[in-house]
Nucleic acid binder design. Structure first.
Lengths: 135, 135
DNA sequence: TAAAGTGTATTACACTATCGATACAGTGAT
DNA sequence: ATCACTGTATCGATAGTGTAATACACTTTA
């Protein structure tokens, strides 16, 4: 059973929380390509939310090419990670980096500090992956 | 007069677009500490939007400590950039970096590529700053 | 003090997002 | 064919968001 949690009442929508968590699971390899995700109803029951909310989560992930669905069978992690060209990926990530950089500068960070932070976070993310694999 | 533009009809709210643009102007030094921003009414007229939308923009910026307001006088760029401790800043930026890293991994980027992208964008941002100063 | 500028507060309203209830449709094992 | 499982589609209640209209209060300048 997947480690998924939601915080109700928090401003962020349930489906968005789930999208982010599942993305992380995929990125860190805890959800393998062609691995099956919980069914819409099962996950809904597990989290005590409406099946439609799970549907929306999966649709969002499908739009980004991270999962594919087989009607009547289930929802699975995509083997090919992304439907975008590398050029488009650079553009998307670049724009998001821009606003992050601006925040950083306004908070008094310099380039080196930001890069260090990035490296720390990357390491931490891989760390959690290792620990999970110890299951 | 500030170079501010908005795209109506685009999903992103006007006030959010303005917040981001003004943040960039501050981060790149094109708006100097204690420099005065356009008045609520003036900017509203310039962009053909409601003054309240500008009010919201400025309030957002004030909450983050980037500007301060003098009732009856105007809105100004803060001298001290941020009201947060470095620890809190790291936390905020770190969380945002986490989701960006996950996106990056899912798009097939490795750590080096992401750092390179970060450096490129940082350089580009400083570039535009230089150009503006040539006015 | 008067005028003309500043930001503030209140109210209204259209629009959208979010989530739930419920009925439908495809798939696969028996 | 049937059953039990998948995902799908549609509708609606509700709350929240984004923007506007308009009247208010403070400051500065003359």
């Amino acid at each position: 059973m997947l480690h998924l949690t939601i915080s109700q009442g928090d401003g962020t929508p349930i489906y968005a929380q789930l999208v982010q968590q599942i993305k992380t699971l995929i990125a860190t390899g805890r959800l393998k390509p062609d691995g099956e995700l919980p069914s819409v109803r099962q996950l809904a029951q597990q989290l005590v939310i409406n099946p439609n909310t799970v549907v929306r989560t999966y649709r969002e992930l499908e739009t980004e090419g991270l999962v594919y669905k087989k009607r009547g069978a289930g929802t699975f992690v995509s083997a090919e990670v992304t439907p975008y060209t590398e050029e488009v990926c650079r553009e998307i990530l670049g724009k998001r980096l821009d606003v992050l950089i601006v925040e950083g500068i306004n908070m008094g960070f310099d380039k080196t500090q930001l890069i260090n932070l990035l490296q720390d976070r990357w390491k931490a993310l891989e760390q959690t992956k290792q620990e999970e694999e110890g299951d």
